[in-house]
């Protein structure tokens, strides 16, 4: 009987790439534009807040450096999880998937701590000033991506626990990995721009109080 292809069988595709993998790559391109626009908004409003708190007052770069390191480590764990899947190392799959999810979860913990400190302790809320609006929106959207990733990884962990992950289903892990690495890379950009470069921003440029090393990117 002719086994004609349907959408989800491992069929020969025109490019040889799996449909889902191609979909994920294009989706990540789309997501790049989303974060690009969010980051652009942040950069346009750098140093434009009229009232404090300003980044220089509250950003805690050492703490965020640690959470960034945690997230980078999770990418390493993700690579290991995929490698274990390809080798059909069932124990490795479970350990490394769980490690990735836990590291991601730890990063989220840092973010919750950061949001709590900034708002309740330091008085920066989403409506306080432009910094509050842009900062919480940008990092919040990233956090939502990480949360989705953690849910995905936990789902995979459950599947792995049933012993259903292995070389034949490695693509399931690889797709999660693609997404996870992307989220990680976006964070590196955010960390660089918001914390390392913009972390010393103070009040409005117009008042000449900008103390950051780089002036605002757009002339007004």
């Amino acid at each position: 009987m002719a086994h004609a292809e349907t959408a989800h069988h491992a069929e020969a595709t025109t490019t040889g790439l799996n449909h889902r993998k191609l979909l994920m790559w294009i989706f990540l391109g789309s997501d790049c534009m989303l974060f690009g626009a969010l980051i652009a908004t942040y950069m346009v409003y750098r140093g434009q807040s009229i009232v404090g708190p300003y980044p220089v007052d509250i950003l805690n770069i050492p703490v965020t450096t640690i959470s960034t390191f945690v997230l980078l480590c999770s990418s390493f764990a993700m690579v290991q999880a995929l490698a274990a899947t390809n080798r059909n190392n069932q124990r490795g799959i479970k350990i490394w998937l769980l490690a990735t999810a836990l590291l991601g979860f730890t990063f989220l913990g840092f973010q919750v701590y950061e949001f709590y400190t900034f708002s309740v302790v330091e008085g920066l809320f989403i409506g306080t000033n432009l910094f509050g609006s842009t900062f919480f929106t940008l990092t919040g959207f990233h956090g939502a991506h990480v949360t989705l990733g953690v849910v995905w990884l936990v789902s995979l962990f459950i599947v792995a626990f049933k012993g259903r992950l292995g070389p034949s289903t490695a693509l399931d892990v690889e797709l999660a990995g693609l997404y996870w690495h992307f989220v990680d890379i976006v964070w590196i950009v955010i960390f660089t721009l918001v914390y390392l470069i913009g972390g010393y921003d103070a009040g409005p440029v117009a008042a000449g109080v900008l103390t950051g090393p780089i002036p605002s990117v757009l002339p007004v």
Binding site: Y45, Q48, I126
Partner: peptide, 12 residues
């Protein structure tokens, strides 16, 4: 209550 386009908070 964010300020992205709130002119009184410096939004553009």
């Amino acid at each position: 209550g964010t300020n992205f386009f709130n002119t009184s908070a410096g939004g553009d």
